[in-house]
Amino acid sequence: MPGGHIAIQVEDLVVGFSDHIVIDGLSLDVREGEILGLVGASGGGKSVLLRALIELLPKRSGRIGFPAFANGKAASRGVLFQQGALFSALNARQNVQFPLREAAHLSLELLDEIANVKLEMVGLSAEDGDKFPAELSGGMTKRVALARALALDPALLFLDEPTSGLDPIAAGEFDALIKTLQRTLGFTVFMITHDLNTLTAVCDRVAALADGKIAALGLLPEVLKSDHPWVRAYFHGARAQMLHLGA
């Protein structure tokens, strides 16, 4: 699947707050059906880029397009926020049903069934659907949030640090889940991550954000060879060496 059309096309994007330019002339192509991992320094603008892509932040200049989709607009997109952003007044099942409820008039029976299918798809049980966000553990919150993001079977999925706050086992399971779902459902994933394991295990390509631009982009081995000082420091630092990434 990777290597097809361009799902997200970003050209010369500039995003900033008052006199502070965060994203400075950034260009990036995300291919249809791939999982692209974005790394970058804390406070370096990763989340700003993601929020600009999903139109939560206005852009100063540049162009964001979705050429693979009709009219060049992403018909449907799912977003997994870092803290899950589940609606606290609704239980897990109602959270998953919410986008469906808004999109169509369905029988309660079918709504419940679809929600159960989605919940089981992300590795939860139908009983977990009765729990409220306050009763869910960190890993379960992420799973419910993923089920909600996938409720309308979006063609584009945006993930903001999907494995942050999870223990290595839960993070590994979540990585595998994203990979499996992506292979089955065939959506395109744009993912921010700090987790070097996620980069190696899940991502088809890796982009490194530094100084408001893409400093390196490509398969992980290619990015590892980059001469950019920040990218070198990131991938060849002590913590990265421990994972035997250093080449």
Binding site: N116, V117, M121, E127
Partner: peptide, 16 residues
């Protein structure tokens, strides 16, 4: 077929 196989395993408990 892959998607149908996936869904085949799900929601076996019946509607809650």
């Amino acid at each position: 077929a892959g998607l149908l196989r996936e869904v085949h395993e799900l929601n076996r408990a019946g509607s809650t």
